[in-house]
Each structure stands twice: as structure tokens, then as C-alpha cells.
């Protein structure tokens, strides 16, 4: 087993312009783990993922992927090293077909995983424009796109169930569980704290850009004080 965690974020401070968003934030994700980052709207969850991916680089602190610093790298370099982001709002390319979305992502690397086996719903819609898919199908496409191309060791999932109907949320949850079973390391950002804690091995609670709590997913799920104080769940 590697001595290094797959991901180690060490004391990062991230800004949007002059606005200080993340304060001395640290977290770790071990190999094969699913770690949730939960918190209220505006707490800094998405900014944390953007910092790791190099889209909003931190001004201080270090981000190590498999023990190597990546905080100065461009997003495309970070992707080629094995970190993949499935962003908030999916950000698929709506005017391209499903197949073109998948093939484009695949062209950036060598992974030939047949995502259509994992996501049969996409197989039926290969020639359909991505913008015309339902919300759930678009989310499946966004996850599929994150799995092809350069080999993915760490998947950053940003609000994968946002805006989806309960039945579709269940489908997405099953996909996340299947990915975990396949040994993919996941850092999951979710506003739906209960769902995130059910899926995660461990979780961090973030509040106004600071990590305020860390524990096992089950532990947090059954800690009424944490749920009520930090997440407004009663």
C-alpha cells in the first residue's frame, strides 16, 4: 500500500478576486475511500473541488496527489495525472451528441472503458443531443465523461444529485456505490447531507470556508448535534 494518501489538501487559502473563500483548509482522502464534504450553501464545497482541480488555484497551502504537489498545475495536467471532476450543473456540451461528449473526453487519454455498459441509458441515446437529455441522464453522461480519457484514480463529484427527482437520486447513488466497489477513490460534495453520509466512509463538515468537523460517515449520520448545528438537519 502506498505511504501517501491519494489526496492531501494541506492548509489551503483560496480567493475569488479579493474575496477570501477557503481558510487554512485541510483534508485527506485515502485510496479506495469515499469521502464526503458536506456543508450549507456557500460554505466553500465547490471552491474546494475547484482548488484541487486547478480551476481556482489556492494562494497558499499545498495539494498533494499521490504525494506529488499539484497546486501549481493547470487543470489539464491535473486531469492527465488521474484526477477527474464531475462538476456542479454537469456542464456537458449540449449541442454535441452523447457519443460526441463521451468520445471527446476519451480522446484526452487512453482509457477505453466501455462506459455504455455501466450506463445503458446512454447507450440508447448515443446520437441524441446532450442538451435534450433529462436531468438524470445528463448527470449520468457527466459521470461517464469523467471516467473516460486519462485513467481516473480520484473522482471529484460535485453535487451529483442536485435538482434530480427522488427516483433518479437513487439511480445516481447506485452509480456512486458501484464506482466505490470498483475501487475508485471519490471525494463527494453534497448538499444532501444524509445521502452523502450514507455513501461515504468518512466525511468533513465545512462551514464558511473552514473544516469544522471530521468523522466517519455513520458517526456523523447518527450525531444529532452535528446534523443540527452544522447542517440544519433535524
Amino acid at each position: 500500500m502506498s505511504a501517501h494518501p491519494v489526496l492531501a489538501v494541506e492548509g489551503i487559502d483560496t480567493y475569488y478576486g479579493r474575496s477570501h473563500v477557503l481558510f487554512d483548509l485541510s483534508l485527506e482522502v485515502g485510496a479506495g475511500e469515499t469521502v464526503a464534504l458536506i456543508g450549507n450553501n456557500g460554505a466553500g464545497k465547490t471552491t474546494t473541488l475547484r482548488s484541487i482541480m486547478g480551476l481556482t488555484p489556492p494562494e497558499r497551502g499545498r495539494i498533494l496527489f499521490r504525494g506529488e504537489e499539484i497546486q501549481g498545475c493547470k487543470p489539464n495536467e491535473i486531469r492527465r495525472r488521474g484526477v477527474s471532476l464531475v462538476p456542479e450543473d454537469r456542464r456537458i456540451f449540449p449541442s454535441l451528441t452523447v457519443a460526441e461528449n463521451v468520445e471527446l473526453a476519451a480522446a484526452a487519454g487512453s482509457t477505453t472503458t466501455d462506459v455504455y455498459d455501466r450506463f445503458p441509458v446512454l447507450d440508447d441515446r448515443r446520437d441524441q443531443r446532450a442538451g435534450t437529455l433529462s436531468g438524470g441522464e445528463q448527470q449520468m453522461l457527466a459521470i461517464a465523461r469523467g471516467l473516460v480519457g486519462p485513467p481516473t484514480e480520484l473522482l471529484l463529484l460535485d453535487e451529483p444529485t442536485e435538482g434530480l427527482a427522488p427516483q433518479i437520486v437513487e439511480d445516481v447513488s447506485e452509480v456512486v456505490e458501484a464506482l466505490t466497489d470498483d475501487g475508485i477513490t471519490i471525494l463527494l460534495v453534497e448538499q444532501n447531507a444524509e445521502l452523502a453520509l450514507e455513501l461515504a466512509d468518512r466525511a468533513y463538515v465545512i462551514e464558511t470556508g473552514r473544516i469544522v468537523h471530521e468523522a466517519g460517515g455513520d458517526e456523523l449520520l447518527h450525531d444529532p448535534e452535528v446534523l443540527e448545528t452544522h447542517l440544519g438537519v433535524r
Binding site: 482541480m53 480551476l55 489539464n76 462538476p87 456540451f93 449541442s95 484526452a108
Partner: peptide, 15 residues
């Protein structure tokens, strides 16, 4: 076409 739509996302895909 993808770059015209969302260059940041294309970069995050590895290009």
C-alpha cells in the same frame, strides 16, 4: 465546438 461552449471544462477534461 466544445471549447467554444465551455473552455474551462474542456481544459478539465485533459486538453
Amino acid at each position: 465546438q466544445a471549447t467554444a461552449h465551455d473552455p474551462e471544462m474542456v481544459d478539465a477534461l485533459g486538453f
